[in-house]
């Protein structure tokens, strides 16, 4: 794998990461913030795969595998919490949830 391809993939990953960050900054809703976080995770995954290929090393691919598992677990727990919070507050606006305890 050539280094130019690596740079191209890295740039793409950077773009996706930026989009995820943008979403996290823009979205005023808990659920949609989660969506943006998924984007961030995927950008990182893409980086891992790119380097894994570049170095001919399976370690990066293993990281990605764990990352996907992690993402699945995180999504399940996060979504369960989201449903609980929604039941409690009838609202998922981050502005409403901006308190440290309740």
């Amino acid at each position: 794998m050539k280094v130019e391809l690596l740079y191209a993939v890295l740039t793409l990953a950077g773009g996706i990461f930026s989009l995820g960050l943008l979403g996290l900054l823009l979205r005023r809703n808990l659920l949609l913030s989660f969506l943006a976080i998924e984007l961030l995770l995927n950008a990182a995954n893409l980086n891992f795969i790119a380097f894994s290929r570049y170095h001919n090393d399976p370690t990066g691919a293993m990281f990605v595998l764990f990352g996907i598992c992690l993402a699945a677990v995180e999504a399940v727990i996060g979504l369960a919490l989201t449903v609980r919070i929604f039941r409690l507050h009838e609202d998922l606006g981050l502005a409403k949830l901006a308190q440290l305890r309740w």
Partner: peptide, 21 residues
């Protein structure tokens, strides 16, 4: 993204991406 994984020769990861994600 799964397509890119396929292109980069990480077919297993690409499949996982589609199935799990």
């Amino acid at each position: 993204l799964a397509g890119i994984y396929f292109l980069l020769g990480a077919e297993y990861i690409g499949a996982m991406q589609v199935i799990v994600y």
